[in-house]
Design a protein around this nucleic acid. Structure first.
Lengths: 258, 258
DNA sequence: AACCGACGGTTTGAATAATGAACCGCAACA
DNA sequence: TGTTGCGGTTCATTATTCAAACCGTCGGTT
């Protein structure tokens, strides 16, 4: 791994629940030497990617990202377009709709929209990271990813997040084949108990899978009619969003859909 | 300059007007070897900071920034708070209000809000870069920055953006002293003809100047009463925003304000 | 078709920069 | 007064990065 990758991977340890990280802890988390981490962080700091705050001079993400995210969004208005589609989807299904994108080897939430038709709903957080093996979005992405990527993902220690979570690689591979055939992933209480989600993949301009669009409903509200509606809405929304983001459906996907 | 800084500085060449940059051009812009740029970009790409698009496999900013900006905003809700203050300021003055932050050695627009009281207004773009010597925000920041930083800024070739732009370092230093005394910078047609702006500095928790808040009005609309109002509103808004962002006014600033 | 220039990308020995163990000063704690 | 853990620094060793030349490819031109 190159120096730049090391530096950038340090940024991945920051999360919503851990927004302040000290030098020693960062060293421990990354397995890099403290001196190395210090030098890397100094460089990140000089560029505004990170700043020091708090009594212990701990690090946190810097303001540079606000500017760069604005530029990215100006160049490729993904979030805007996504929010439009999600709003329609949430309205049409009466459930929480969300889109997650693959960034390196982790899947993170780009945007979500709640429906206001029911008092109960599945709630989410922006920029949250979703496990690939335990969410319908993750299974979707794996289903349409290169073998090497799938192998790496299933080799890792798979966390059992609920009693229902499937952590057996062989069984997961069988599920992936199913998802590929149906072009849709379904997940019941794999990530959180009482949540039933459907997801479909999203593709970029080179027909590579870049993420997924999903609808998450409370298990208690699910029935055959509701499920049919969610599936139909998703089958409409997913290819539409792919196209709006400038992507193209892979041949295999188009054919199966026909 | 370390490798990480080089890699990150490559990102600074992307702008609203130039969102796609090829390998050779990036090499030319940065002065780095093509092979170097290629390797650095490959690493940035692997982390999702950059992606390739277009027929020529050119580079553009990646999706990683959306996630990191969301995390930054969750940790330090600067933009939210700023937009609130700017909305009030724009309403109270009837003019365009904006906030710019220092990122490394460049000043870039964080947010702006238009007033709807007049048909004409000063328009802006998010994430735009402002010259330090030719804007009231820039002069503000320089006035409250360390000498070394000011020296470096004034040493550089100062672009003459309008006929009024002051590019003489000696005269600029005199202006900085004035700004420091008034705690406010005023700029008439220095950046763009027909624009009259007032700006005041913003500070972080270590009392270092991190940017400025400004009100920009068409020259044609300026008069004594309007100016007095803008100044009064700005004197209220600037310290308020500093406090809301978790910053503290430096002693010298507080005293002079009293 | 042959040529041209510019593109993204790759190779090379030579030079530069990254590395990590030990260390420093400091503050909290016992 | 000793211990622990913190952020940060030093410096000889070593691995990474650099620059220049080189590929194959693509569009346009002659």
């Amino acid at each position: 791994m190159g120096t730049v990758s090391k530096a950038l991977s340090l940024l991945t340890y920051f999360s919503r629940s851990q927004s302040l990280i000290g030098l020693s802890e960062l060293s421990r988390l990354s397995g890099l030497n403290k001196a190395t981490v210090h030098r890397l962080m100094s460089e990140l700091q000089a560029q505004g990617f990170v700043e020091q705050a708090g009594a212990g001079r701990e690090y946190r993400l810097g303001v540079a990202f606000l500017r760069l995210a604005a530029l990215r969004e100006a160049a490729v208005p993904m979030r805007d377009v996504t929010l439009d589609v999600l709003t329609e989807l949430a309205e049409a299904t009466g459930e929480t709709a969300h889109v997650s994108l693959l960034q390196g080897d982790t899947l993170s939430t780009l945007a979500y929209v709640y429906s206001h038709q029911h008092g109960t709903r599945v709630t989410m957080e922006d920029a949250d990271i979703l496990p690939l093996h335990a969410t319908s979005s993750g299974l979707c992405v794996l289903s349409f990813s290169a073998d090497a990527f799938v192998d790496a993902a299933l080799e890792a220690k798979l966390e059992k997040l609920t009693e229902q979570t499937e952590v057996n690689p062989t069984k997961l591979r069988a599920i992936l084949a199913e998802v590929r055939e149906n072009q849709m992933a379904e997940s019941v209480a794999n990530f959180e108990a009482d949540v039933h989600t459907h997801a479909m993949p999203l593709f970029d301009s080179r027909q590579a899978c870049i993420g997924a669009i999903a609808v998450a409903a409370p298990v208690s509200r699910m029935n055959a009619a509701h499920r049919d509606n969610i599936r139909a809405q998703l089958r409409d929304a997913a290819p539409r969003l792919t196209r709006l983001m400038g992507g193209f459906l892979p041949q295999s996907f188009k054919e199966a859909a026909a």
